[in-house]
Design a protein around this nucleic acid. Structure first.
Ligand SMILES: [Mn+2]
Ligand SMILES: [Mn+2]
Ligand SMILES: [Zn+2]
Ligand SMILES: [Zn+2]
Lengths: 141, 141
DNA sequence: CGGCTCGATGATCAAGATTCTCATTTCTAT
DNA sequence: ATAGAAATGAGAATCTTGATCATCGAGCCG
């Protein structure tokens, strides 16, 4: 969000980078594919290459500004890094993504890793199901 | 393993299908990529196409005979469905995969999904870390 | 402000994984 | 054994993402 974050990461403050950050901040969908960001930029009249979007997102990821997630789709999704770690629930029908953090699960993960002689560094947890959104095509009546 | 499993799934009993099942059963590595299976077949003198391996594995998955996992590699890995559900720990250094099942985590997942109004259908949980295998290049002394 | 230098960009190409197409082969049931 | 349907293999195609390279622009100095 701050241009200082870019400078801190050793990245020049450029128009494509600021526009991509802007979209990640302002989109009601916190979780976006590279292509969704690209299309949004095109729609708003920006001239940008898809390769730049992928490149910039990868740099942002390395700088800790965004997270890359693989949510059972062919394309990765990106989200702004704020708040801190959390995991995800995805609706199989409408694709809606919700976030959660559960200390019980986090703790058990560490215990399990230790039992197996692993020093845990990271984890990926995604729950899949059917949501109760009124707009969800599979909404239970 | 049984040809009856194939017939039950509405699949003809063919040589490629039986050979693939055989490899999934006998490999010491329970988790194999499609290409690993393909290479193993070639090495043992079978004439098979990579497309067939992918096709058959996808059919096996649909029939519930195998599971497809995405373990932080570009390629999916497949494993024979037996025992029942479990999750995975992967070593970042040597790629070793261990399995675990934790009822505490499973229960919390259901509770979290319910709190969010989701009817949970499935989940993916992978822990990443460094293992303590003597052959692991990163083994802590 | 004007120019310099190197990182950034955009267009295109390339790579890797997986699926699709289609002619040919192989099962399976009769 | 034969016919009909399904499966196979070879290769093309697709999709996502990263690499190349000539051009452009941000940051810096005077
Ligand atoms: Mn998130
Ligand atoms: Mn497993
Ligand atoms: Zn939904
Ligand atoms: Zn290891």
């Amino acid at each position: 969000m701050e241009t200082s974050d870019l400078k801190k990461a050793g990245l020049k403050v450029t128009l494509p980078r600021m526009k991509i950050l802007e979209i990640l901040e302002n989109s009601e969908t916190r979780h976006l594919t590279a292509e969704a960001i690209y299309r949004e930029l095109l729609d708003s009249g920006e001239e940008i290459g898809l390769a730049t979007v992928y490149r910039v997102l990868t740099q942002f990821e390395a700088a800790g500004l965004v997270c890359r997630l693989h949510l059972e789709g062919s394309q990765a999704v990106f989200e702004l890094e704020r708040g801190g770690h959390h995991d995800h629930i995805v609706c199989n029908q409408c694709g809606r993504v919700e976030e959660f953090f559960d200390e019980t699960i986090e703790t058990r993960q560490r215990e399990i890793a230790r039992q197996h002689g692993f020093s845990i560094k990271d984890h990926a947890l995604v729950l899949y199901g059917d949501c109760s959104d009124s707009a969800c095509p599979h909404r239970p009546v």
